[in-house]
Amino acid sequence: MTDLSTLRFFRTPAHSCSYLEDRQASTLFVDPQATLSPELYSELSLLGFRRSGDYLYRPHCDQCSACIPARVRVSDFQPKRRHRRIRKVNDDLVVNREPARFTRELYSLYADYINQRHGDGDMYPPSEEQFTNFLTCDWADTQFHCFRQAGKLRAVAVTDQLEDGLSAVYTFFDPHLPERSLGVMALLWQIEQCRRLQLPYLYLGYWIHQCQKMSYKSQYQPLEILRSGAWKDLPDKD
Rank of each mutant, 00 (worst) to 15 (best):
M1F: 07
M1D: 11
T2W: 10
S5P: 04
T6H: 09
L7F: 08
C17G: 12
Q24G: 14
A25C: 05
T27V: 12
L28C: 07
F29V: 05
D31E: 07
D31C: 05
P32Y: 06
Q33C: 07
A34R: 10
S37K: 06
P38G: 05
S42Q: 11
S45C: 15
L47C: 02
G48F: 03
R50D: 02
R50M: 03
R51H: 04
S52T: 08
S52Y: 09
G53H: 07
G53T: 05
D54C: 14
Y55F: 13
L56W: 06
H60P: 03
Q63M: 14
C64A: 12
A66W: 05
A66K: 06
C67M: 07
V72R: 02
V74L: 10
Q78K: 15
K80T: 15
R85K: 15
N90M: 10
N90E: 12
L93I: 13
V95D: 08
R97L: 15
R97K: 15
P99F: 05
P99V: 06
R104E: 11
S108W: 00
Y110T: 00
Y110N: 00
Y113A: 03
I114D: 00
I114L: 04
N115V: 01
N115Q: 05
Q116K: 13
R117Y: 04
H118V: 06
G119Q: 12
D120S: 10
D122L: 08
D122C: 04
P126R: 04
P126Y: 09
E128M: 08
T132Q: 04
N133S: 11
N133G: 11
F134E: 00
C137Y: 10
W139E: 00
F144K: 00
F147M: 07
Q149H: 13
Q149W: 08
K152V: 15
V158A: 01
T159F: 04
D160T: 06
E163P: 01
D164I: 07
L166D: 01
A168G: 03
Y170M: 02
T171I: 02
T171M: 01
F173I: 15
H176W: 14
L177N: 15
P178D: 13
P178S: 15
E179K: 15
G183L: 08
G183M: 12
M185I: 11
L187N: 13
Q193G: 06
R196T: 12
L199Q: 04
L199P: 01
L199T: 03
P200A: 03
Y201D: 05
Y203S: 01
L204K: 02
Y206F: 07
H209W: 02
Q210V: 00
Q210L: 02
S215L: 01
Y216E: 13
Y216S: 10
K217L: 09
Q219D: 15
Y220T: 13
Q221D: 11
L223D: 04
I225Q: 01
W231M: 03
L234H: 07
P235F: 03
D238N: 11
